[in-house]
Amino acid sequence: MRVEVDQPRCVASGQCVLMAPEVFDQDDDGIVELLTDRPFPDQYDGVRESAAVCPAAAIRLEE
């Protein structure tokens, strides 16, 4: 799996950080930052759920 984030779209809802804290983080303004673009398989569920709930469609996955 490959993950991409689109920071200009992010609205700092924080949901991805709650669902996949090993993959997503926030900068000082709460905007998403990637900790890794290649998550481990046990993180896939959290990443998929993050992409599904992200209100700004700022998370893209390639599986």
Binding site: V11, A12, G14, V17, Q26, D28, D29, G30, I31
Partner: peptide, 10 residues
């Protein structure tokens, strides 16, 4: 909105 997002970061 971005001017006030900082304190709401997780």
């Amino acid at each position: 909105r971005r001017m006030v997002t900082a304190p709401f970061a997780i």
